[in-house]
């Protein structure tokens, strides 16, 4: 009997997962398939770019700086043992561009902006603001979901690039200013080793994929929230956990495809 119950529960969970995925897909499709309304949609998008992107700028910049500095310090200690400390520049740059930039930005974005998006939409639902939009014949998917989705997709790749650039500068501070590596060799080796397609374009592709997934999860969790305090709390937690796991899993997949 217990085995039957477990199999039933497993089947139930599988159906729930698939139907949830379907609902999320329909929500996203309905939100982005609408013809953009430039006159009314642009101010909404600009506002969300500010909330989602600009307000995440400080945490991304500071994190990027410190991660670049730590990377350079650890890298210098190892590379100097082999007498190749001049390779610090490309080591820091490639680590940031290929992995840490897109991944850490996505994780920070999920914690900073993703949870805020879920809580905001969840509260809009619990205070009947989404229903009142419906009643005013305004599609909440177009008015609320679409601008937030595009704001996430536009701002996260830019934030990831800023993260990597600031991180490289952090590496320069530690490597060149502190440890005394020659500035010319730091930058010239970095420049010769970093490739446009292999490193920068792939970094951008990764962060666009992460942006879509993180923003999608955050918006879906907010839109499907059970409209009470416990429901909103659970939804924000789910956003951070699911978005972080999705980013890490997708990172492995993308890395295997790009560099494997």
């Amino acid at each position: 009997m217990r085995i039957v119950e477990r199999i039933t529960a497993l089947g139930h969970n599988a159906i729930e997962f698939i139907s949830g995925f379907g609902r999320a897909g329909i929500m996203l499709w309905n939100a982005i398939v609408n013809v953009p309304r430039f006159r009314k949609g642009t101010p909404l998008l600009i506002k969300q770019l500010y909330v989602v992107g600009v307000q995440s700028f400080v945490i991304i910049t500071i994190s990027g700086l410190f991660i670049g500095m730590v990377l350079a310090l650890q890298g210098y200690n190892i590379l100097s043992d082999f007498g190749t400390s001049e390779s610090l520049g490309p080591m820091v740059a490639l680590s940031l561009l290929r992995e840490l930039g897109p991944v850490v930005t996505a994780l920070l974005f999920a914690g900073r902006a993703g949870s805020a998006l879920t809580a905001e939409i969840g509260l809009m639902k619990s205070t009947e603001q989404l229903s009142s939009l419906e009643m005013m014949a305004v599609d909440p998917l177009r008015q609320v979901i679409a601008p937030r989705f595009w704001a996430g997709v536009i701002s996260m790749p830019l934030l990831a690039m800023i993260f990597s650039a600031v991180g490289i500068y952090g590496g320069h501070i530690v490597g060149v200013e502190w440890k005394g590596i020659d500035a010319g060799s730091f930058w010239s080796i970095l420049q010769s080793q970093v490739e446009w397609h292999q490193d920068i374009l792939n970094s951008l592709i990764k962060s666009v994929v992460f942006a879509v997934v993180v923003t999608w999860i955050a918006l879906y969790r907010g839109y499907q929230v059970i409209p009470n305090p416990e429901g909103i709390s659970r939804a924000t937690t789910k956003t951070v956990v699911q978005a972080s796991l999705a980013v890490l899993a997708l990172d492995f997949l993308l890395t295997a495809l790009m560099f494997g």
Binding site: T127, E128, Q129, S131, S132, E134, M135, M136, A137
Partner: peptide, 13 residues
């Protein structure tokens, strides 16, 4: 719906 409207219990402003 442009011909109807609803006053929600919470106001929903």
């Amino acid at each position: 719906r442009q011909r109807m409207s609803m006053l929600f219990q919470s106001g929903a402003l």
